[in-house]
Write a protein that binds this DNA or RNA. Sequence first.
DNA 1: GTCTTTTTGTTGCGAATTGCAACTATTGAA
DNA 2: TTCAATAGTTGCAATTCGCAACAAAAAGAC
Lengths: 165, 165
Amino acid sequence: MLERSLTYHLSSITEDGIGSANRIFETRFGWSVRELRVLRLVRSTPGVTFTALSASTKFDRSLTSRILSSLIKAQLIERTNSPEDARVFTLKTTPKGKALCDQADPLTVELEALMLKPLPDKEREVFLAAIDRVKAWVQQGYIEEIGRRYPEMNTGSLGKRKPKL
Amino acid sequence: MLERSLTYHLSSITEDGIGSANRIFETRFGWSVRELRVLRLVRSTPGVTFTALSASTKFDRSLTSRILSSLIKAQLIERTNSPEDARVFTLKTTPKGKALCDQADPLTVELEALMLKPLPDKEREVFLAAIDRVKAWVQQGYIEEIGRRYPEMNTGSLGKRKPKL
DNA sequence: GTCTTTTTGTTGCGAATTGCAACTATTGAA
DNA sequence: TTCAATAGTTGCAATTCGCAACAAAAAGAC
């Protein structure tokens, strides 16, 4: 047993959790967890632009673009070119996309409930609340703090564009 | 914001956490988080066999084998052929491997503490305890329960060998 | 106006990852 | 002895996915 290793434990949980879910979702709905996640992100933030969406998904713009394309091609998401800026488009779920979400949601809820089964109600709440807080922190101050403490971090790319030519 | 999505939040945290840690560890020690994880697993379970180790790491035996090879080649891990069974070998860390662990440990501890900074002591404990319980559950009963509820799960491979030729 | 710079999103390409299945070697069972 | 099962390795190849180049449009400079 690994004495301490938060990230090990967490990734272990997510891998097991997502791994099994992935197969169920794929066979039932034909879409992976990741793709459905993009769909849901669009649903929960209708009118979102590609750039904003890309920031949420955390993966490369190219990957976001590709996943998005497949969802649009499948008519789960509708793409509307912005009238103000021709480079920009906004996204929203189509009825078909919403229907798929609605169909998938219960399963998501069920799986999550099952994952948290060993936790009594009280602890579950604390757990979920803690996750939210840690997540917010890790995305904000944490990264900065890391950069401050460990200068070796400040090279390389992460969501950055090529600075110059 | 994704209303519910436990695995999304968790993977988001782990990605940010591991992502930043990865660079620090790699530049400081020349080994990735994943490789160090294998090293630590061996340290915490000296005498472990390849198969058992492979089960812990969760990745394919082939990948486990390759990572292990590099650690052995670097003389961080020592491989001892089992006298009883010539197919089997057991693993333990070398002094050099231990030294590397010892060197890396404080950083791990520091990074984890930093990640959990937003949680007050009490909640932190509950959080960590919850993680342990959920992890154990997800690895045991959860998987089985999933297999029971969702028969589509029972195809495909996960740590299984090819059944027949 | 035009010239340059910046931003948005897409895509070609190739490197890296890694899972699968075939393979060797050994053990055990019939 | 032969057949089956198990331990670990490796070749192969499909996939993934990030980088960087790109086109198109907007914004700014002058």
